[in-house]
Write a protein that binds this DNA or RNA. Structure first.
Lengths: 162, 162
DNA sequence: GATATCGTACTCGGATATACATTGTCCGAGTGGTGACGG
DNA sequence: CCGTCACCACTCGGACAATGTATATCCGAGTACGATATC
């Protein structure tokens, strides 16, 4: 059970976007280059974020992706849901209802204990992810930002605005 | 991010084993037949459980699988770990250390915030799974056991013991 | 009748195909900027 | 000098291959049971 690496890619990309001035975005190329990632594949993942409404896309020259909401209102769970899909990892197919000794009148209204336990566990996981917002992490990144990094970002942005 | 269906198969199988008299086991064939599952594939998953030390295997006629510990001492996490492997779903590859504007002297002693957040979330998930033992679920199953089901199990076991 | 031995049936274990999902790449669609042209 | 128009470069979006992992199956290795022959 492993998560798509796209989650890590887009999470870092979103943190970067969150550190930018409000309303300003960057093209997928720049987001990929910033962490030395494959541009085309990064673009694909950003599309998923756009479909999910986490980011907004602006086409044409000077376009790119920018956050659709305030960083405080975007959680890690939003990103996971956009990339991985919101379906639970444990998919109960009700095998308890199969086999030679299943009574037709067996009451299966309540989910089986195994299913219930996994649902509780994934809920705890989801709640933890929902409690972490981009704003929290962007602050950490901004604190460590070097002049070098600021310069590159400014160049990208001003290059856009020029 | 989806979990192997083998987890569901083996979880139900282990609950069944937990409901049996202490020390008694069943062959993989019987475990599969009980829930109308592919016997060969069930056998493969039971092997993983045996390697992980969750169940013990007994070869030869009258052999099979039996729990290696008391049901109270086997948790859902043990089964997930045996089937899926204990590695975290989110694999941080430290992409923050890549790219054009990474300072060589940047301190990366502490894990990045994204990595830390996912680690916390998965920990919550793991703790929840560790808190559920086979004994809890076996009791639920035994309470609902029909005479039909009891008869089939007795037949399998006595067929073994005869 | 008891015991040792051989054969057989049963079960696990790992090696081997297959299907599917993820990963990775490319080209077309759409849009804003820019320069040229005309008024 | 200003406004309009057409062209171009840039960016997103979805369609298309390559790779890796999970799924599914089969056959060989090993063991206990039982039958048989012998003492």
């Amino acid at each position: 059970m492993k998560m798509s690496e796209g989650v890590e890619w887009t999470a870092h990309a979103c943190v970067l976007l969150a550190a930018l001035p409000k309303g300003v975005g960057l093209p997928a190329n720049a987001l990929a280059e910033f962490h030395a990632l494959a541009p085309a594949y990064m673009a694909k993942h950003m599309q998923a974020l756009a479909r999910a409404g986490v980011v907004e896309s602006v086409r044409g020259a000077g376009g790119g992706y920018r956050l659709a909401r305030a960083p405080r209102d975007i959680s890690l769970w939003d990103i996971v849901e956009a990339i991985e899909g919101g379906e639970p990892a444990f998919r109960c197919v009700e095998i308890r209802q199969q086999g030679p000794c299943v009574t037709p009148q067996g009451d299966f209204r309540k989910p089986c204990e195994i299913h219930a336990a996994f649902a509780r566990a994934e809920n705890a996981w989801r709640i933890e992810l929902k409690s972490v917002s981009l704003a929290d992490m962007a602050a950490e990144v901004a604190r460590k930002a070097t002049p070098q990094k600021r310069a590159l970002l400014t160049q990208w942005i001003t290059g856009k605005l020029a």
